Amino acid sequence: MSKHDRWSKLLELLAAEGRLDVDAAAVALGVSPATIRRDLDELAEQQMLVRTRGGAVAHGVSYELPLRYKSSRHASEKQRIAAAVAEMIADGDVVGLNGGTTTTEVARALALRAGGSRSERQRWDPADATSPLFTVVTNALNIAGELAVRPRVKIVVTGGVARPQTYELVGPLTVGVLNEVVLDVAVLGVDGVDPELGLMTHQEDEASISRLFAERARRVIVVTDSSKMGRRAFAKICKLDRVDVLVTDSALPGETAARLTEAGITVHAV
């Protein structure tokens, strides 16, 4: 098991339990206690946990994995979801993307689609900046960075204060920009989908921005792997009646899909 894999597993265990014991973690990962101690020391240096005698604890009650460690989880499912969503976007659409690993994959799929075929790239005049294939409005710095170099994607980045865990911009500056735009579609990544409470995420400031994305859009597409279905998180984004389409993976239980369909949501399991 590589160091990256060990760290990801340790952070997952910490997120689930709130604390880690060196000996128990060593057994769970099949490595020596000395290796676990070194890993915890390095993670503590990066301020991703707090070292304690014999183990470690999370920084707070509501703990979330940093984006760079979540990106490898359910990777193939997220890529299939992203490819399906990219086909749902019409040429010329203004697309809102909040932050997250699945929406990052959606951004990459849109970038590939905007690249077009070789003949289309040859016909397109780079000087014609007035007719991008897509306009993407995002509060995610990593998504903006990936799309900024794509000549056929117009990228609009909100202002705001950056959260280091998710690279999302939040706060009044973000709200100010979103209140001035109109979106054809908002593609939202979430941390939980509850049949009664709706869409949820870990942080209340990110939830308010995602809610505004939904309010500014004509159509709302939720993208999430099936592990998030039926899960609750701390902060509510919006109810399910605001969602038009949900794209997830094929592991979605049939009864859950039926319940969502009865609520008026178009479900795509890919």
Results as ranks from 00 to 15, higher is better:
residue 134 F to P: 03
residue 173 L to W: 15
residue 171 G to S: 04
residue 184 D to F: 12
residue 179 N to H: 14
residue 129 A to N: 01
residue 94 V to Y: 09
residue 165 Q to N: 08
residue 175 V to W: 09
residue 87 E to Q: 12
residue 110 L to Q: 06
residue 87 E to W: 05
residue 156 V to P: 04
residue 156 V to T: 11
residue 106 V to H: 03
residue 83 A to D: 08
residue 108 R to T: 11
residue 178 L to T: 03
residue 172 P to Q: 06
residue 176 G to W: 11
residue 112 L to Y: 08
residue 133 L to P: 00
residue 132 P to S: 07
residue 185 V to Q: 07
residue 140 A to Y: 11
residue 130 T to K: 02
residue 123 R to A: 14
residue 127 A to S: 13
residue 97 L to G: 06
residue 83 A to T: 07
residue 186 A to M: 10
residue 138 T to E: 10
residue 155 I to A: 08
residue 152 R to Y: 15
residue 186 A to G: 03
residue 79 Q to R: 14
residue 180 E to N: 13
residue 171 G to K: 01
residue 170 V to S: 05
residue 177 V to A: 13
residue 85 V to H: 00
residue 130 T to N: 07
residue 107 A to C: 11
residue 146 E to T: 10
residue 78 K to Y: 02
residue 145 G to N: 11
residue 180 E to C: 03
residue 149 V to S: 12
residue 102 T to V: 14
residue 180 E to W: 07
residue 162 A to L: 15
residue 156 V to N: 00
residue 183 L to V: 01
residue 151 P to S: 10
residue 158 T to L: 11
residue 84 A to D: 03
residue 179 N to W: 09
residue 111 A to W: 10
residue 107 A to G: 14
residue 168 E to R: 02
residue 125 D to I: 06
residue 159 G to K: 02
residue 83 A to G: 00
residue 154 K to W: 07
residue 108 R to D: 05
residue 81 I to D: 11
residue 181 V to S: 04
residue 129 A to Y: 12
residue 177 V to L: 15
residue 111 A to K: 01
residue 121 R to L: 14
residue 175 V to I: 13
residue 105 E to T: 08
residue 100 G to E: 05
residue 145 G to F: 04
residue 179 N to R: 11
residue 80 R to D: 11
residue 114 A to K: 02
residue 99 G to W: 07
residue 92 G to Q: 08
residue 180 E to M: 11
residue 135 T to W: 12
residue 84 A to I: 01
residue 122 Q to S: 09
residue 160 G to Y: 09
residue 124 W to I: 09
residue 148 A to P: 02
residue 103 T to G: 03
residue 169 L to T: 09
residue 107 A to H: 06
residue 171 G to D: 06
residue 143 I to S: 07
residue 100 G to Q: 01
residue 89 I to V: 15
